[in-house]
């Protein structure tokens, strides 16, 4: 899929981008970077922070359960998809 804005794809990643991609794939066992994360590849330093804060608040227990947070995330994404 070709994004509207140029991003660094898995096969062309070098330097800091390649490092962040590799660490993610090793940790998750995923062979390919998800699209949403490649959107941040123009700033790999920021990409790392985006993954970190996602882990901190979303992909972990907190005041809400993981299920409740996933529900909120799914609903927000559904709401944002329809032009309002």
């Amino acid at each position: 899929m070709q994004p509207h804005i140029r991003w660094i794809d898995d096969h062309e990643a070098t330097g800091a981008v390649e490092e962040v991609y590799r660490a993610y794939k090793v940790a998750t066992g995923r062979p390919q970077m998800p699209g949403i994360l490649k959107c941040f590849s123009q700033r790999p330093d920021f990409l790392q922070q985006v993954m970190d804060f996602s882990n901190t608040v979303h992909f972990s227990e907190g005041h809400l359960t993981r299920r409740q947070k996933e529900m909120i995330a799914t609903y927000v994404s559904a709401l944002n998809q329809c032009p309002y």
Partner: peptide, 13 residues
């Protein structure tokens, strides 16, 4: 960025 697939957010990193 033009991501179409609504499932674009990843499995938990």
């Amino acid at each position: 960025f033009g991501l179409q697939d609504p499932g674009y957010f990843w499995n938990p990193p």
